[in-house]
Design a protein around this nucleic acid. Structure first.
Length: 543
DNA sequence: CAATCGACTTAGCACAATAATT
DNA sequence: AATTATTGTGCTAAGTCGATTG
């Protein structure tokens, strides 16, 4: 379905992303609804009626009371500082210590409210849903080059308290309400310009077709840009996605040469080149992220390949019977821990030792290079090649290999799906896609264990090798399989890689080859996103 | 060259909706 | 019908990377 404009064919469209773009602008969150008079905030044991701005911020905190966040001191400090800024002079005079603040009544009020909401009748819920659908219908779509396309995030982010991941120094800071006056609208010249809410105007209306966003603003906590953009199902995003996989496929043709080159670098007399060679080796072998440098003390302390520090690796001449072992232990994106023990080439090991010489634990391991340099180098090996392409390439290659290895035509549908799942899991492990263990994990595990013990008891009772005991044993086996399966999936985030790194054509071709209905492996959202691959005419796609 | 900006992709979490089990 | 497990979706933070600036 796509006009296959390979990027190297010279951006024939001058980098223009669209010709016409029309939309209704973003949807604003509802205004703050003041607390009823019988619900109050207490200071030092006494009820205090807050001014509206202060009250609103107080409710943000009150709503989070049972979250672990509110127990952290930096969360509390950040919140309190920002809250005081919203207070009137008198309030600021009176409210000086968070420890004397009591939000429990407000908290209770919101808990009750959500209970009420849960308890609504089907009809009431239906009405709400209809209203929501109407808003989505009106604001959730735009018209791009004559096609109606779904927008990804058409709502302006509501105010609240910033929740970073991991040990974020800014956790608890007030994320302010965005006014129309802060929002830039991007649309076509001759189109119906979105109307700002009554009594307001936009910061600016522009007609820039070299970018894909419909609206943008700057968020106050970190000063980052926020954008309203299209949904992944849109043609614009789909085409970009397809291009990404085409670059990864091109890497497949070049990767052996590139690997030879970076291995050569290990022997280079220049330290910088050696570091480049080893860093690329990690990125390729371990699917590490590039690792841009980031602003210290503004964000959580996380690293990728280029920003690894000496303290993040430990060298073992020998470990577990293997030579030249490197132990990685660091926090990556989203403060997800990366722990791995990997055997490496002797040369790599020697180089690492060299890089670590005379350095403090908090010094950069690769002190002579950064991601810009690395990407410039990669671009010389292959146009369009950057560090992140290796993740796409290695993830997709792994999926293809695993599927080939694990599936045979004589399998039942169930077995095939199990193979598919296993292949997916291998990729998730490669990319270190993890999630927090489900809250109910321990309990549900215990439930399964209880069932198992129950069956043992019954079996004991029915001694004598009848049809019944055989059935019980079957059940037992099934349960035990369930348990291992759940244990293995405890912290693995399966969906992530499937959505971002795996060329959907691999899965589509596999489904066709083994007669598996596509909806068994992709849900509705995914099918929309990957429509271009599902519709492909190529019969026997190999990554 | 480093620092910053701007636009875009990638990511896990919270909660809702749905399905399975009791 | 109630409870519990699973799956889907919205949200928005946190990365990557090229361009711009000084």
């Amino acid at each position: 379905i796509f006009v296959k404009t390979l990027w190297e064919e010279g951006n024939s469209n001058n980098g223009n992303k669209w010709t016409t773009l029309e939309h209704k602008g973003p949807l604003f969150p509802p205004e703050y609804e003041p607390l009823p008079n019988n619900v109050s905030f207490f200071y030092n044991g006494n009820p205090v009626k807050l001014t509206l701005p202060a009250e609103e911020v107080a409710t943000f905190y009150a709503k989070m009371l049972d979250h672990e966040y509110t127990t952290k001191s930096s969360f509390q400090e950040n919140f309190f500082t920002d809250w005081r800024e919203e207070m009137s002079v008198e309030e600021r005079e009176q409210i000086k210590k968070l420890s004397k603040c009591d939000f429990t009544h407000i908290n209770k009020y919101f808990l009750d409210k959500s209970e009420e909401k849960k308890a609504m009748t089907k009809e009431q819920k239906q009405v709400l849903k209809e209203e929501n659908n109407k808003l989505t219908e009106e604001y959730g779509f735009c018209e791009l080059d004559g096609h109606r396309e779904k927008i990804g995030n058409f709502r302006v982010e509501p105010p609240g308290l910033f929740r970073g991941r991991g040990e974020h120094p800014k956790m608890g800071k007030l994320k302010k309400r965005i006014q129309p006056e802060e929002i830039t609208i991007n649309c076509s010249k001759g189109s119906n310009i979105p109307v700002a809410p009554k009594g307001h105007r936009w910061r600016k209306v522009q007609h820039d077709n070299t970018v894909t966003w419909l609206a943008s603003w700057v968020e106050n906590v970190q000063g980052n840009f926020k954008y309203v953009m299209l949904n992944p199902s849109s043609k614009l995003k789909g085409e970009k996605d397809w291009q990404k996989y085409e670059v990864a496929r091109k890497l497949k043709l070049k990767v052996e040469t590139i690997r030879r080159l970076y291995r050569e670098d290990w022997k280079n007399r220049e330290m910088k080149t050696r570091q480049r060679g080893v860093a690329l080796y990690f990125i390729d072998k371990l699917a590490l992220r590039a690792g841009n440098e980031k602003e210290e003390s503004e964000t959580a302390d996380t690293v990728g390949c280029c920003s690894l520090r000496v303290e993040h690796i430990t060298l073992h001449q020998e470990k577990g019977g293997q030579e030249f072992m490197v132990e990685f232990d660091f926090l990556g994106k989203d403060s997800i821990r990366y722990y791995n023990e990997v055997p490496v080439e002797g040369r790599v090991f020697k180089n690492l030792k060299l890089f670590m010489e005379n350095k403090e634990p908090e010094d950069d391991l690769f002190d002579r290079i950064n991601t810009t340099y690395l990407n410039k180098h990669l671009n010389q090996s292959m146009p369009g090649l950057t560090a992140k392409v290796f993740r796409t390439f290695n993830a997709s290659t792994t999926l293809q290999e695993q599927l080939n290895k694990l599936t045979t035509a004589d399998m039942s549908l169930e077995e095939k799906l199990l193979s598919y799942n296993r292949a997916n899991r291998a990729v998730a492990i490669l990319c270190n896609h993890q999630r927090a263990a489900p809250k109910t994990f321990e309990k549900s595990m215990q439930n399964l264990q209880d069932k198992v013990t129950g069956i043992y008891a019954k079996k004991e009772h029915k001694r004598g090798g009848t049809e019944r005991t055989r059935k019980l044993e079957e059940q037992l086996k099934k349960l035990q399989l369930q348990m291992t399966d759940r244990e293995e999936n405890k912290v693995i985030a399966l969906g992530t890689s499937k959505l971002n790194y795996l060329d959907p054509r691999i899965s589509v071709a596999w489904c066709r080859k083994f007669n598996v209905p596509i909806e068994k492996i992709y849900n509705k959202t995914q099918r929309d996103k990957f429509a271009w691959a599902i519709d492909m005419t190529e019969e026997d796609f190999q990554f």
